[in-house]
Amino acid sequence: MAEKEFWRWPEYRHTTPGINWREGKVISAGVDIGSVSSKTAIMVDGEMFAQSAMRTGSSSPDSAERTMNWALEDTGMTLKDIHYIVGTGYGRVNVPFAHKAITEIACHARGANYVWGPTVRTVLDMGGQDCKAIRCDERGKVQNFLMNDKCAAGTGRGMEVFADLLSVPIEEVGELSFTVDEEPPPVSSTCVVFAKSEAVGMLRSGWSKEKVLAAYCRAMAHRVVDLLNRVGVEKDFVITGGIAKNIGIVQRIEKELGIKALKPDKWRSDPRFDPMLAGAMGAALFAKALYERSKGQG
């Protein structure tokens, strides 16, 4: 089992420098347990303070504890110091220490509003196992949404399967998919299982890895653009979730949609704005609001 695991994306933690959390009035946290990744965002008075992202294990409660503990690591803060915690994502009801669970749709819209500001009107959340097109108002409140949870194509899990199949590290998939002379037609299968066997066939018939990747990225982009058109895209448009970091997908979506995503690279210069953590950030902001309300009412 010494083989390289190409699908592995980097797990990480981060603390925002220069924040003295002991002086904060409200310490809130959001824990997003997705099917593929688990994320924690800890905020001090509504500003990102500490965060972590790691792979979801076989047990949701366990994954929740691990991502929370990792985010807390070396901050001097403990779970007891956090006033209010909201769980979100597919495992949201299985976060043992959460005070409340809120759907990831609401959290992604709120998180996108935090990361990119009040001009955001359309959010595409590309998660591990499904895709959601969300319309929201200037406060990040959901107005309309559509999910596409029919199968794993067009999702993080589908991308992992492909990275592994082609032995390409997942972070390099995007770049590599642009190294083709000519953009190939998209893979025709919308199901990831069939797309995989289609890809094997392409490789056998002499297609390069890059070409197969390009064909797959294109198919993925096509599927989500379908979803987006159904809710109607209004600017500003942003992409959240792990796949937001894959330029091979992002640029193909932009091209097909005819609309550019707002600053998809913001996270590169400032890790606080990781699009993968948008759901956890939204949850932390709801946690703050819920805590303040509980105080306000005595």
């Binding site: 309309n144 949404f145 999910m147 949870d149 029919k150 809710v231």
Partner: peptide, 11 residues
């Protein structure tokens, strides 16, 4: 107004 859509489209 907030609309929640549940469901899917397929072939």
């Amino acid at each position: 107004m907030m609309k929640a859509n549940y469901g899917y489209a397929d072939g």
